[in-house]
Design a binder for these strands. Sequence first.
DNA 1: GCGTCATTCAACCGTAAGGTTGACAAATAA
DNA 2: TTATTTGTCAACCTTACGGTTGAATGACGC
Lengths: 120, 120
Amino acid sequence: MFNRMVKQNHVRLDLVFHALGDQTRRAMLARLAKSEHTVGELAAPYRMSLAAASKHIRTLERARLVKRTVRGRIHYCRIDPRPLEHADDWLRGYERLWDTRIERLVELLRHPDNGPSDSR
Amino acid sequence: MFNRMVKQNHVRLDLVFHALGDQTRRAMLARLAKSEHTVGELAAPYRMSLAAASKHIRTLERARLVKRTVRGRIHYCRIDPRPLEHADDWLRGYERLWDTRIERLVELLRHPDNGPSDSR
DNA sequence: GCGTCATTCAACCGTAAGGTTGACAAATAA
DNA sequence: TTATTTGTCAACCTTACGGTTGAATGACGC
């Protein structure tokens, strides 16, 4: 019976992570974090057409990361960071794994091949 | 001169968030967080073909979230949560925005239309 | 050496993503 | 009223994604 909720959450995470998986959209969110902006303002910095930027904003909306208020012909967008919390909750469960130096060492002992050379 | 590094980071974030934007891959990471697994083991719970699962693992690898050690014909996978930290760093900058109850109220006063009804 | 097991590769398929353009709609300004 | 501004819509294009299948690779067990 809770399955539906859980499923929903997964779908929501899909939307959020997908929305974040694009530089343009992350940059838009970054600007929205500072202040509200119209669609035109959000689109302005980019070379792409207004229509393309508009689509990006829509995918941010579908992920519920952005809310829009239409006033006259102008569409004001603001951020809603709450879904990011869910994403963060998910992440936090995993990053701790690497925290302890000891684990890092164990890892190395077990697999000396791909060690700390890191090759980046 | 730092531009290359910055750009690289954005591309890396793209890869990480994209990798996370899929239920199957998130579930694989979840299992890998508990212990090491072979490709076959990771693929087993799913209906999809082994080849498909193998592709998912590759996209996790490209995002550097998974490391692989080949021993004989068996490929062992383990998680590397370090890239998740970067993703988390990015996220943490934004979620704070909504923390204060006051901001929530201000938001409501400015835009009474799409209030806390939330409509999910 | 031979069959089998673990995995990838290559080709293909349908669909979604990200972009363009041109037409449209609605609110504002002249 | 007419023109202009703000944005979306619809159609289209190309490329990537997620999946399938069948063949190929390479170790292992006998």
